[in-house]
C-alpha cells in the first residue's frame, strides 16, 4: 500500500509539474503587424525561408514559437506597398521567463522534455511589429535608404532619449 502511494505521489508530482511554461504560458503566440500606410502586403517567412503567411496590414497572426526541439523560431517579415520601398523586419524567439520556473516546479522533465517540445520555453519578440514604409518617390542608395528607414522607424530607446532631452531643454 505504501509503495502504491509513493508511486502515485511520484507520478502525480511529475505529471503536474511537467513543463512550467507549457502550463502557464503555452501555445502559439499572436503577433500584431501594422504598417504606415496600412494595406501593405506582408509576407512572413520562417527560419528556413519557407513562406508562412501572406496578408495585408493590419494583421494578427498566430505564430509557432519554436522550430523543433530546443530550436527557437525566427521569422522574416517583408512589407511591400506600391510607391514605397520594401522593408524587412525580424521576429525572434527569446527564452520565456516561465521556463525558468522549472527550476522550482517542473524539474528536469519540464526543462528538458515538455517545454522544449511544446515550444513554450520561448516567447516571440516583438509581439507587435510596426513599420513605417519609406516612399520611393526619390531614388536612394542602400545607405540612404537605411538612414531613411531609421529616421522613419526610430528605435524605442532612441525615442525615449529624445523625449527626455527635449524635456531637459525646456
Amino acid at each position: 500500500m505504501l509503495k502504491f502511494f509513493k508511486l502515485t505521489t511520484l507520478v502525480i508530482v511529475i505529471a503536474s509539474g511537467a513543463g512550467c511554461a507549457s502550463m502557464v504560458d503555452g501555445g502559439p503566440t499572436v503577433v500584431h503587424i501594422n504598417s504606415e500606410p496600412a494595406g501593405a502586403k506582408v509576407s512572413v517567412f520562417d527560419r528556413e525561408d519557407k513562406p508562412v503567411y501572406t496578408q495585408t496590414t493590419p494583421a494578427s497572426l498566430s505564430l509557432q514559437r519554436s522550430h523543433g526541439y530546443f530550436a527557437g523560431e525566427r521569422y522574416k517579415v517583408v512589407f511591400e506597398a506600391p510607391g514605397y520601398y520594401p522593408a524587412t523586419r525580424y521576429i525572434d524567439s527569446q527564452i520565456n521567463g516561465w521556463y525558468l520556473g522549472n527550476i522550482f516546479f517542473g524539474g528536469v522533465i519540464g526543462l528538458l522534455v515538455v517545454d522544449p517540445m511544446t515550444g513554450a520555453m520561448y516567447t516571440l519578440s516583438p509581439n507587435e511589429l510596426n513599420c513605417n514604409l519609406v516612399p520611393s518617390t526619390v531614388a536612394m542608395s542602400p545607405e540612404e535608404l537605411k538612414a531613411a528607414e531609421l529616421k522613419a522607424n526610430p528605435p524605442k530607446a532612441l525615442k525615449s532619449t529624445q523625449v527626455q532631452n527635449n524635456s531637459l531643454k525646456k
Partner: peptide, 8 residues
C-alpha cells in the same frame, strides 16, 4: 477554435 495548451 480552442487553442488551449494540451499540457496545461
Amino acid at each position: 477554435f480552442n487553442d488551449s495548451s494540451v499540457v496545461g
